[in-house]
Design a protein around this nucleic acid. Structure first.
Lengths: 217, 217
DNA sequence: TTGGAGCATAATGTATACAGAATCCCGGAT
DNA sequence: ATCCGGGATTCTGTATACATTATGCTCCAA
């Protein structure tokens, strides 16, 4: 099956990737004309991608003033974090039949995660993949899409955290706890642990973020 | 404070409104060029609005084949319904300080709701407003935005239900139950009732939808 | 020196132009 | 009559053009 994909989607992924990798610092302007020539396409698909990113909260946009990378804001992190905690736990509860191979795949990702010391991007990619695999059995595609879209937000904060705070890799401890709950108590208990871990991680990130904004730069 | 608003936002609201009012039947094509001339703007803002509607699930779009109004699909309704039930209950739990006037406003909306017999659109508008007022105290703006965006989906099903099933108005019974729980048990118990009412409403709508798709048209 | 008015420049939002793909229509073959 | 193929036409996706608004700089005045 061949599928043509709109340019705007490709541009979207490119730009999002660059933002997540820190190529465009917070608050910096993203000019459609510059991006267009840089990516070798016209302004139209670039603008469509930027509009989407703005709707998803990655960019700010005010009429006539273009787009800029949204500054990290503890409030935003908390707001999205609370939503994501609820949604991912919900997705876990909805995952009825869980393949036995799933636990193996999760463990394997954790294994890779532990030896990516230093590479923040690879680390975050694996973190994303871990969540994808964990929720893979959830039949609610719409929910999974929504989660994937929202996860971009904490990802940016994690990336900044790892870059600036010197923390070299994500702890796999929360993963282990969730897997244990999954193995022993099933999805419901895992969902509870999940929410609890989310709260802990949020608190840690938030603590760092507020200290960071206290002494800017 | 004067605010200029992009044309795409205005077009978005117009088109969404028309879809919700049943002006474009399910499955019908929406041609950007036709809409553009009809609305007196160019294709560009129209296409931006259509792309957004497609991302929100109101429209289908496949590369090179334009946009069409998504057919009502019981699966979609259930998927979004489950998400919305969780999110609205969450928003209710997060609403800490509740103004005393809120209950009055809710009762007043219900009052108006009971005398809109026949006008499906007014009825749905009031239903939306009821939910907005109920969740108004939730400080998580991001969550409220998400809820507002997702509510478009069940709204379409409700509109079709009211038009085709002959049910003239929404029952205000669920509202009464939720308000009672809110008054007596606070937000947490209201959230529980909320989720329960969501499940009931979903089941009813789903039942109708599946019977409807069984005998198409 | 600083603050602001006015102009030049650049960038955004919107409109239009263009190329290629999808759809439709019709004629011919089976 | 029905199914298939080819060509015309419509429409989409992308590129480019245009007009208006924001921005930045210069020069003048307080």
């Amino acid at each position: 099956m061949i599928t043509r994909v709109p340019l705007r989607d490709e541009v979207y992924r490119q730009v999002l990737d660059r933002i997540q990798r820190g190529r465009y610092p917070d608050g910096s302007r993203l000019q459609d004309t510059a991006l267009a020539s840089e990516l070798g396409v016209s302004r139209t698909p670039v603008r469509e991608a930027l509009i989407r990113l703005a709707r998803e909260g990655v960019l700010d946009s005010s009429m006539g003033r273009g787009f800029r990378v949204r500054e990290l804001d503890p409030v935003e992190l908390r707001e999205v974090g609370v939503i994501l905690g609820g949604l991912e736990a919900l997705a876990l509860r909805l995952s009825s039949g869980r393949a036995a191979s799933q636990l193996d795949r999760l463990a394997e990702i954790d294994h890779r995660l532990e030896r990516t010391r230093g590479d923040a991007d690879a680390c975050l990619d694996l973190e994303d993949e871990w969540h994808r695999v964990l929720l893979d059995a959830c039949p609610n595609r719409r929910l999974l899409d929504l989660i994937a879209s929202l996860r971009q937000v904490p990802r940016r904060y994690l990336a900044a955290y790892m870059r600036e705070a010197g923390r070299l890799s994500l702890s796999t401890l929360p993963h282990a706890r969730i897997i244990a709950a999954l193995r022993e108590g099933g999805h419901d208990s895992a969902a509870a642990v999940f929410e609890q871990q989310w709260r802990k991680g949020l608190a840690e990130l938030e603590d760092w973020t507020s200290r960071r904004s206290a002494k800017p730069r």
